[in-house]
């Protein structure tokens, strides 16, 4: 049997009259009837759209709430422990361990081994340059020894922070994703343990920021020094 032309059924679904042949075919053919019924349902639903059904974006607080819920809670304890490290949340580890970002310009740190070398061996290093005219500069190096990987940060001559502290971050090259790896104490020299499973090749940018005791675990956007690590 020759079925109805879909173009004909479409305009019938919109309410145009069917020809005699089509009407007779529809009486006899469940297949064509079912196509027509589905389109009739779509048309009737679409025709009941009101101006209120048009899409509106949620307020910005919704996205902020999502980020807050998925970020780790800030626990400001043991701040004088220079080796303190905040663990990144699961999603970051998943991104770092999984497909993640592959940065063409950065070599894979993970291939460097140090089992026979005297410890610690330097996996990657780079200079830190000052931002915003603060006259400071320093160095950062990823070191590896039998206990794991550490970020050794040295920034001499940093001014003391009033009601706050310096936080060290490792970030993707475009600084879109940042991991807090620990604080930089008043001595300006800290060795921070990196989370196991963190692929440091994905986070070649080292950043030191001014943070306040405000319970906000995010980056303050007040960076003092920054630099890229290279192998």
């Amino acid at each position: 049997m020759v079925h109805c032309d879909d173009d004909d059924l479409a305009v019938i679904a919109l309410g145009e009259p069917a020809s005699r042949e089509i009407e007779e075919h529809l009486q006899a053919c469940a297949l064509c009837r079912s196509s027509l019924d589905q389109w009739v349902a779509v048309v009737s639903s679409a025709r009941s759209i009101t101006p209120d059904d048009h899409l509106v974006a949620p307020p910005p607080s919704v996205w902020e709430g999502i980020r807050d819920e998925l970020e780790p809670r800030a626990t400001v304890t043991s701040l004088d422990d220079a080796r303190r490290s905040r663990r990144p949340v699961g999603w970051l580890l998943a991104a770092a361990a999984g497909v993640g970002l592959v940065l063409g310009s950065v070599a894979t740190f993970g291939l460097v081994t140090s089992s026979t070398a005297p410890s610690p061996s330097i996996v990657a290093q780079g200079g830190l340059d000052s931002m915003d005219g603060v006259a400071v500069a320093g160095t950062a190096a990823v070191e590896e020894d039998e206990t794991g990987r550490h970020l050794h940060v040295t920034v001499p001559d940093l001014p003391p922070v009033e009601d706050g502290y310096y936080e060290v971050w490792m970030a993707t090259a475009d600084a879109s994703t940042m991991v807090a790896v620990g604080t930089l104490g008043p001595s300006g020299d800290s060795i921070l343990t990196l989370p196991a499973g963190m692929n440091v090749a994905d986070f070649p940018l080292v950043d030191v920021s001014v943070e306040h005791f405000d319970g906000n675990p995010g980056h303050s956007a007040q960076s003092v020094v920054r630099g890229l690590l290279a192998t």
Partner: peptide, 9 residues
């Protein structure tokens, strides 16, 4: 994990 303030909004 945190995101640079510039990209939060």
């Amino acid at each position: 994990m945190a995101t640079a303030a510039a990209s939060v909004h």
